[in-house]
Design a protein around this nucleic acid. Structure first.
Lengths: 189, 189
DNA sequence: ATATATATTCTAGCATTGCTATATTTTCAA
DNA sequence: TTGAAAATATAGCAATGCTAGAATATATAT
């Protein structure tokens, strides 16, 4: 009997609707507008139902953050493959990273400032997180010996640029110049 | 009659007590523990008094963030003067930046993630913000032609490193290596 | 010195939030 | 069809940011 399967499917669907609604609201009105009541209304169930899917509000944000890391990884890989040459790929990846952050500000916020509980270097690290790091390492790797240090530094530079751009603390216009500086640093030995 | 002066002094003192209490609580228990009720209790006044000093809770965080930028500026300058040579100064400044973020995590959080409303490149930008940027530029400046781009990129790299370290997403051990990489990039033409 | 006006502070409460205990309904198997 | 179990809803708690209005203290003018 496929009853259990159907129920499982329906639950997964509803869970998806929850995160989708949360993402939509967060992107259009900010994370403060993402309340349990609002989400319950959106999916047309009562509030306690949400707690049968997620332990608490933060867990919803964390789930979305993990989605985001998966999407970021594919976006970076797509950029890497679209461009030939080491330096060209690095620059493409860097620009893709910043574009991603700019296109989904609430998602990026979930990934890097809301869901701080998601560690990287631990045993329970979700594959999506490792994969995003790996996508960056692939772009950095071929050109350098100290891959890990270089990748961490590359990531930090990109994240810093994304964050300071978002908060309007560095000029929006000089993005390309800053990326060129970062990339030129990492491309050479 | 110095009555108005006395009142002004008392008000300023009370305001200082509010931000001091908020900072203390934030550093020891996190920003969630910084509630208006808690602060009111701490300064031994009723809650509405706080609203005669600050428009709302966020304004308290913003005031603390500005304090933080001032302190960061002096810390960076101290590091720059303590070390001779261009490259040496750059590295000292970088390490001082990361140490500052590590020593006052709640303060740093206030500066860069809580008080997002504080813009840099606008007319109403507080001098403390400009000064912190200037302190970085002083360290970057002598070695480069494109000072502004280089300073923005330097800042972004440092902020990214601080943020990813704080959230445990890059290894705590390799800090020096990453800083060396960043500095070597900016020191050379 | 006293009364009045002004400034200051407090009490009490509203609306919203995350979350949960409990009641109710629906679903499935015997 | 009926009874157990799973799923869902109602109602409410405690905490939060914030504010209206009452009450108190303070300074000035007579």
């Amino acid at each position: 009997m496929g009853i259990a399967e159907r129920k499982g499917r329906e639950r997964a669907e509803r869970e998806q609707r929850i995160t989708a609604a949360a993402r939509l609201i967060a992107e259009s009105e900010g994370w403060n507008a993402v309340t349990i009541r609002r989400l319950a209304e959106e999916i047309e169930y009562s509030q306690p139902v949400l707690y049968s899917h997620f332990e608490n509000r933060d867990a919803i944000v964390a789930a979305i953050a993990i989605e985001g890391f998966g999407e970021l990884a594919t976006a970076l890989r797509q950029a890497a493959h679209g461009s030939a040459g080491c330096q060209g790929a690095l620059e493409s990846v860097a620009m893709a990273y910043l574009a991603f952050a700019r296109a989904h500000p609430a998602l990026y916020e979930a990934m890097f400032t809301k869901a701080t509980g998601l560690r990287f270097a631990e045993t329970d690290t979700r594959p999506e997180l490792k994969d995003a790091f790996a996508a960056l390492a692939e772009a950095v790797g071929p050109a350098r010996a100290d891959v890990e240090v270089a990748t961490e530094t590359f990531w930090a530079a990109l994240h810093g640029l994304a964050d300071l751009e978002r908060s309007g603390r560095i000029r929006q216009g000089a993005r390309a110049a800053r990326v060129r500086l970062v990339v030129s640093c990492l491309a050479e030995p």
